[in-house]
Simulated scan of single mutants.
Amino acid sequence: MRHNKPYRYFTHLVVWMALILLYAYPAIKANWQGPMALKYVLVRQVLYGCINFQLFFLLAFVWLPAPVARRQYRRVVVISLLTVCGFALMKYFIGYVFFPDQVLIKMFAMVGYKNTYMSFPYYFLTATRTGLGVALLAYSYRLLLQRQQTGPQDRQLATAAEAARERYVRMQENSRLLLHHLQQLTPILEDERKRDQEGVKAILLLSDLLRYMLYDKALEKDTVGLPKELLYFERYIALRSLCHSDQPLTFSASGDTQQGTLAALQLQHTTETALQQLHSGPVAVRVQVKPGRLLLSLQQHAAPEQHYQFKIYPDHA
């Protein structure tokens, strides 16, 4: 990128000086016939405008990029103040040596009297105020460039952070659900009559769901293949029926269940929440797959049927 630096410098210089000349044009046109007045305008506005550009460029592209990128604001303030003061001294030196009647003049005297010139402290404060305005402009421009350069990275980091937060919430919810199943499984394992058959089956189902919820690579994405999700949803239904014998579940699915993707574990979480609001008794759980959507229905005798709808994404999404 080193070859771009001269181009960047001259591009900004042309724009800056074009604005200066546009500002000074009325004064230049009005004093074109007067050499002294024209020199006054050219030195104070054009030449010192070019000097102010050097201050702007040094701050915006040489000395401020690193501290601005690292958010070292104290260093930004110190560098800006030192640079502004240094340029104020340089401006005074140039005016004192070469252009005292154009730069340091405070008041033109009448014929026969001496002109009044600015003292060093007075001119230094005046030049410092101008330099601070240029420094503020350079800092704002540097922030704009920094935002343009880091904007895409910040958005990627924000997206990654949001995805990580969603995975954490999902894992937390999965862990809570598995712990709930494990607690409900304890009475079955303590009953010798149920331990050999229902207990072993429940342990196998719980182990299978545990591997799926916590270790399956597919769950690192937002969506999971519909066949896999329905397979483990059916195993969840079987496990919950074993753990809650007072609320047996029957499961049925219809439609094209072999294509599309679905939000991971959404069926399990929705069903678990809905079942906790129902009373004891058999519950029929039905899944209907339609173009672009999945309908989940829970029906219990003497209770209104509950319906839930989920979006199905294409396999390539």
Rank of each mutant, 00 (worst) to 15 (best):
P282M: 00
M107A: 10
G151N: 08
Q149K: 14
A238P: 06
H12F: 10
Y25W: 11
G199S: 05
K217P: 10
A88R: 05
D222I: 05
A109I: 02
L21W: 00
D216E: 06
R167M: 06
Y308F: 15
A37V: 11
V200I: 04
S254Y: 01
R211K: 15
L267C: 09
V224G: 00
L242W: 09
Q288E: 10
Q45N: 03
V289C: 00
G112H: 01
Q277N: 12
Q258F: 08
D246Y: 07
P282L: 07
L182V: 05
D196C: 10
T271S: 07
H12V: 05
A202R: 07
G225M: 05
L104D: 03
Q300R: 13
T159Q: 15
T130F: 02
E173C: 14
T116R: 09
E234I: 01
A264T: 11
A253T: 07
A263W: 13
R147G: 09
Q54W: 04
V68H: 01
A253G: 01
G199N: 00
R193T: 12
T250K: 03
L231R: 13
L226R: 03
L278Q: 15
Q276W: 04
R176T: 06
L22P: 03
Y113I: 02
Q102L: 10
D256F: 04
N115Y: 04
E192S: 10
V41Y: 01
A302D: 11
A202L: 02
G49L: 06
Y96G: 02
A263E: 14
R167P: 05
L265E: 08
Y73S: 12
Y40C: 06
F57A: 03
N174K: 15
G112Y: 06
S207D: 02
L89V: 09
A60G: 03
F87I: 00
L210H: 15
D216Y: 07
A60P: 04
L209C: 04
Q197V: 08
C243W: 00
L177Q: 09
E234F: 08
Q288L: 06
L58K: 06
A303C: 11
Y9N: 06
L132N: 11
V200K: 12
L104Y: 12
Y236L: 10
L249Q: 05
R240W: 08
H269V: 11
F53W: 00
Q300W: 14
A27E: 01
E305S: 10
L82S: 05
D222P: 00
K114T: 07
R195D: 05
Q266R: 13
T270D: 13
P121H: 01
S280A: 13
R195Q: 00
L206R: 03
L13Y: 06
H301Y: 06
A263C: 14
L178P: 01
E220H: 10
L267P: 10
I312D: 13
Y212L: 01
P65T: 00
H12M: 02
L298A: 06
Y232T: 07
V46Q: 05
V62D: 01
Q197E: 04
